[in-house]
């Protein structure tokens, strides 16, 4: 009797989950099948989900545009730099906030958090001018720095919470052994913080991967565009070429998805201790 009810419980749960997933992924399903349709089938008065004639034409066009792989690579580089530097910088800051004793700590934590509250739309023009003065316009560096400042508050705060959960004896022992703070961070704290580091990595990578507003202003030349901006050049300005758009969105989702699926265990572990355990 008991095992029976457990089975039904599981079944109901699974069915519910399947329905929800279907509904939530409907836009993605449409995107996937649209990308496999020939142009004439994309916009019709009687839309059908499945293509009448399967074709890889959109993907072929996409990869025949020599800019597309470059846009992908640019996005990848920018996101990677953002993620790696985020980890380094935020772990340093988080370490100081947890293991060092100084006045004004609380204020600093708050101040970092408050940077989220300034509307990004107003940052655009001043940031553009500033990058000009510093000769950073049209460089990936400008983008990396911008994204860094958006990802840091969350990353610092998350690593800080994770570090707080590390047994103090561990750090204490290292310090007694004569480690410097820096050694302590790299040899003791970071190795046991892989989950949190993964979480920070995913968060800051995703942030850089799909950002639109700043990439659109700070990058000028075609060779430096990221995929979120490059998309627009590909699909046109006077109408939306849904075939190309969906094909491109599928191509750009896949690598991130694969990456996430591989590290998701760590990612969630990192969130477990980092953000929600007290």
């Amino acid at each position: 009797m008991k095992s029976n009810s457990g089975f039904w419980n599981k079944a109901i749960r699974l069915v519910l989950l399947m329905i929800l997933t279907y509904v939530l992924l409907f836009p993605m399903t449409v995107a996937l099948f649209t990308s496999l349709k020939p142009p004439g089938e994309v916009i019709t008065a009687t839309p059908s989900l499945l293509p009448h004639d399967f074709t890889l034409q959109n993907y072929r066009v996409l990869f025949s545009l020599r800019e597309f792989p470059r846009y992908l690579l640019n996005s990848f580089l920018v996101s990677c730099y953002t993620a790696l530097i985020s980890i380094l910088v935020s772990s340093l800051a988080a370490y100081a906030l947890v293991w060092m004793n100084f006045t004004g700590k609380r204020t600093i934590v708050k101040a970092i958090f408050f940077t989220y509250m300034f509307p990004q739309i107003l940052l655009v023009l001043p940031l553009f001018l500033m990058c000009y003065e510093l000769n950073l316009i049209d460089t990936k560096m400008a983008l990396v720095l911008t994204y860094l400042s958006f990802s840091l508050p969350f990353c610092v705060w998350m690593l800080k919470s994770f570090f707080e959960s590390i047994p103090e004896e561990l750090v204490e022992a290292a310090m007694l052994d004569g480690c410097t703070y820096l050694q302590c961070l790299f040899k003791v704290v970071l190795p046991v913080s892989i989950p949190a580091v993964t979480a920070v990595l995913v968060f800051s990578f995703v942030l850089g991967w799909s950002e639109y507003l700043f990439a659109n202003t700070l990058i000028i030349s075609d060779t430096n565009r990221t995929i979120a901006i490059g998309l627009q050049t590909l699909i046109g300005y006077y109408r939306v070429d849904y075939g190309l758009l969906t094909a491109a969105s599928i191509v750009m989702t896949l690598p991130v998805l694969l990456f996430f699926v591989t590290v998701q265990k760590y990612f969630i572990q990192g969130l477990v201790v980092g953000s929600v355990k007290e």
């Binding site: 939530l24 992924l25 836009p27 993605m28 995107a31 995703v206 991967w209 799909s210 639109y212 995929i227 979120a228 998309l231 627009q232 758009l245 969105s249 750009m252 989702t253 991130v256 998805l257 996430f260």
Partner: peptide
């Protein structure tokens, strides 16, 4: 997936 989608898409 939706988290990775660019807002334009």
């Amino acid at each position: 997936i939706p988290w990775v989608m660019p807002s334009m898409v």
